[in-house]
Nucleic acid binder design. Structure first.
Length: 578
RNA sequence: GGGCACGUAGCUCAGUCCGGAUAGAGCGUCGGACUUCUAAUCCGACGGUCGUGGGUUCGAAUCCCACCGUGCCCGCCA
């Protein structure tokens, strides 16, 4: 209802200013502080004071008087407090919110008939997913979910680098070294087994005998050339390595869960001729230059040229990515990419080049995040430094299990069997990891520390999940939730506050989708949880008189849908008991 | 050296895009609340030159400039 009320207030305020012959381009609509009883306010009087020649409070009073409150549905009164015009919610605002929240799909916005492809993770298939990379799938999946809630038709893509030098090194190493020369794998899983070849290959190239390294380099070059020339056998050799490793990584990502509609391979754009075709078009651009035997774009506003064809005639990652993005534009209305901040320059150049090729780059947006580091430094697959995401998730689940078990003895209700304990441990453990990452602004740096990442207390996933379990606990005691609940029975301020917070959920989704900021949904879940806890403390539900009980049950049901959907929008599960 | 990001309570973070009402949480510390729908909860206290210095404005954590600190980038790597 918040979205509807805001629209109504905008119209009413504009009409009022128009009546007073005042400019309407700055309505100054904002949300008042908590202790003010209004849902919306306007600070326009500050700016209009000069124009009118009267002090702001006087202007505010005139504006408030000029508003035709009787014609408004969701506003009961327009009052003033100093220079502010405050808009108070009407009974209809509360009543319709209570009604809307009884829908299982509350918060889901109408279909926009717009397709969006969200590309995220796209980590090189070289080994186990480590925590340094984990921010990408968690943010990416949340962005996709939020867009889905906001009414977009979303596809999730993982762009697979199966054509670069690292993959050629990996293929060579896999075919060259014998398993008996390798250490035991850290886990019984394909990517853990395979990464041993990759690490061995890299250290060989660094420290090996000069002649042998030269032979190896020739072999690696042959693989790269084979891919460039479209040699079928080379594709198959590389694909064996890539698909095996990717399969293992996919299993780990699935635990988050981060799932994909499509794994788009880079070689696809080499094989179908689109990269060659793109190179032709790039060469025809005004800013295309041939320098040092290589084709480059001398992009305006960039210090560094963008090389798109090496002196040996082969394409580069960026060249193929340009073809990839044109393919996205052909198939989707919008494209979002989640990238590490180290790709910022590359992404800006990509965008500039796409623009020069005649694409509408307004439909392309990036979300950048900064790396997760360890207190002692960065994480690297090649060096084998870092914490594997599998280990983090295992530890999170183990700690959550301990928490559940330690609480079994003093539970006042709801016996849990072994299956429940395991379910809760997974929901809470993985939820805590996701929530910890998704709730922070992506651009801020994170230093990974076990205890901080796995804190199950306030401002964490379990804090929010707990109110869902509490709602479920109450609702379990009744046969049905009354459908004709009367919000008038919700007289306590805690109940009204809760209803106000619930009313905002669709607006939270809309804004998070618009700004591609899922962390604001996480912030919202915390506010919702705090407000519900106040209600829970002050307003007994089951023992209330019939009319109050019915209304409070409806409010609990609405809270349950809201918290479940808000958590779902950021990819955190909502346990029915804890 | 140049570009981009970040700097808010002892610690971890919201708020910054779109300037407005006494700058909000959690953790930690201290003190309270389970015969009442789950205490992974709640209530209270303590805690802040919003990196620094200028500027714009009736009003700046928020916009502009300079500086300091930290991170990332500046490959015919990805």
């Amino acid at each position: 209802m918040f979205l509807q009320m805001r629209a109504e207030v905008e119209d009413a305020l504009e009409a009022a200013l128009d009546t007073l012959d005042l400019p309407t381009e700055d309505l100054g609509i904002e949300e008042p502080p908590e202790d003010v009883d209004a849902v919306l306010a306007s600070s326009a009087a500050f700016r209009l004071a000069g124009e009118v020649g009267a002090p702001p409070p006087k202007v505010a009073a005139d504006v408030a008087d000029a508003i035709d409150v009787d014609s408004l549905t969701y506003v009961s009164a327009a009052t003033t407090q100093g220079p502010y015009v405050n808009f108070l919610p009407s009974d209809a605002y509360f009543a319709e919110t209570l009604d809307a929240a009884t829908d299982d799909d509350f918060g889901r916005l109408p279909d926009r008939e717009t397709s969006v492809v969200v590309e995220h993770t796209s980590a090189n298939p070289t080994g186990p997913v480590h925590v340094g990379r984990a921010r990408n799938p968690i943010i990416g999946d949340a962005v996709a979910r939020v867009l889905d809630y906001a009414g977009y038709d979303v596809d999730r893509h993982y762009y697979v680098n199966d054509a670069g030098r690292q993959i050629a090194v990996f293929t060579w190493a896999y075919e060259t070294f014998d398993e008996s020369d390798l250490p035991e794998p850290e886990r019984d899983s394909p990517e853990y087994e395979m990464v041993r070849y990759y690490r061995k290959g890299n250290s060989f190239l660094e420290d090996g005998d000069a002649d042998e390294v030269e032979t190896a380099e020739a072999e690696i070059q042959a693989i790269l050339q084979g891919l460039e020339e479209g040699d079928e056998e080379t594709y198959e050799r590389v694909a064996e390595v890539v698909d095996t490793v990717l399969g293992g990584m996919q299993a780990t990502l699935g635990r988050l869960p981060a799932e994909f509609d499509e794994f788009v391979k880079e070689t696809r754009f080499m094989r179908d001729g689109s990269t060659d075709e793109l190179v032709d078009r790039l060469q025809g651009l005004d800013c295309a230059v041939y320098e040092d035997d290589a084709w480059q774009l001398d992009l305006p506003d960039f210090e560094k040229n963008l090389v798109f064809l090496r002196s040996d005639g082969t394409s580069l990652y960026t060249t193929r990515d340009l073809a990839h993005h044109e393919w996205k534009f052909d198939n989707y209305d919008r494209a979002v990419t989640v990238l590490g901040e180290d790709h910022k320059l590359q992404a800006d150049q990509l965008s500039a080049a796409l623009d020069l090729l005649g694409n509408d780059t307004d439909q392309l947006r990036q979300v950048f995040y900064s790396w997760v580091n360890l207190p002692e430094g960065g994480m690297s697959t090649r060096e084998g430094t870092g914490i594997d995401l599998d280990d983090l998730l295992d530890e999170a689940i183990a700690r959550a299990r301990e928490e559940v078990e330690s609480r079994l003895d003093d539970r006042s209700r709801g016996e849990l069997d072994d299956e429940d304990v395991e379910r809760i441990a997974h929901q809470v453990g993985i939820g805590a990891v996701r929530y910890d990452i998704v709730s922070k602004q992506p651009t801020k740096g994170i230093t990974f520390e076990w205890d901080r990442a796995l804190d199950f207390e306030a401002q964490s996933a379990p804090y929010v999940q707990y109110i869902h379990a509490r709602c479920c606990g109450i609702l379990d005691e009744v046969e049905t939730v009354p459908s004709d609940a009367d919000f008038d029975a919700l007289t306590e301020p805690e109940a009204r506050d809760l209803l106000r917070v619930i009313a905002q959920f669709p607006a939270v989704i809309e804004e998070a989708a618009e700004d591609l900021q899922p962390h604001s949904v996480a912030t919202y879940t915390r506010t919702l949880a705090e407000t519900f806890n106040a209600f829970y403390r002050e307003c007994p539900v089951l023992d209330a008189d019939p009319e109050t009980r019915a209304a409070r049950l409806a409010l609990v049901a609405g809270t349950r849908h809201t918290v479940a959907n808000a958590l779902d929008a950021i990819g955190v599960e909502a346990p029915t008991s804890m």
